[in-house]
């Protein structure tokens, strides 16, 4: 099984790996130590000290905070909520629900008709990064994109206990 050095992983994450090398990684067997390498790189890059339990998107991680809770946290340090609750409920939201708002992002006719479907943009309340965009009909519940089973992941798959305070 392959294993890659930290520099390679960092270049990969940053989209800076030459395509030939990227292709080789794609075609090879997976490096089993990737999870730990990836978490270690992310941990070094975030502005907070809470331990990352699971990467949860481009700027989100599920972390173990000082009080022992597993919470969704933005790279900027903004804490949303426990990971069992949809973080979007605690985000800022902007809804493109008119032709005019949609045409800021798409030419006429190349977006949805807002009567049928709107775009919901979810921003981090602190750094205002656009973290997700939902494309749903009006009246659709917020999509809970991912509810991980962290205990099963660590205990059954990684064969080690979930980190605790």
């Amino acid at each position: 099984m392959p294993s890659y050095d930290r520099e390679t992983i960092e270049q990969l994450i940053d989209g800076k790996l030459p395509f030939r090398q990227l292709h080789k990684i794609l075609s090879s067997f997976k490096d089993p130590d990737r999870f730990d390498q990836y978490v270690s790189v992310l941990q070094n890059r975030v502005s907070y000290r809470d331990r990352i339990l699971l990467p949860y998107g481009l700027h989100l991680n599920i972390v173990l905070n000082e009080s022992g809770a597993r919470v969704v946290k933005c790279d900027c340090g903004h804490e949303f909520c426990e990971y069992t609750t949809n973080w979007k409920l605690n985000a800022l939201v902007y809804v493109r629900d008119t032709e005019e708002k949609l045409q800021e992002v798409y030419p006429r006719f190349m977006a949805s008709d807002p009567k049928w479907m709107v775009l919901r943009e979810f921003y981090c309340p602190t750094c205002l990064t656009q973290l997700e965009v939902e494309a749903v009909p009006p009246g659709y519940p917020f999509v809970f994109d991912f509810q991980p089973d962290i205990d099963a992941f660590y205990e059954k798959w990684l064969k080690r206990p979930v980190p605790a305070v």
């Binding site: 998107g57 006719f109 977006a111 008709d113 049928w116 479907m117 656009q130 965009v133 939902e134 494309a135």
Partner: peptide, 11 residues
């Protein structure tokens, strides 16, 4: 035409 086929991800 009246809807998007899917969504993007991570923003």
């Amino acid at each position: 035409g009246y809807v998007f086929h899917g969504a993007g991800v991570f923003g």
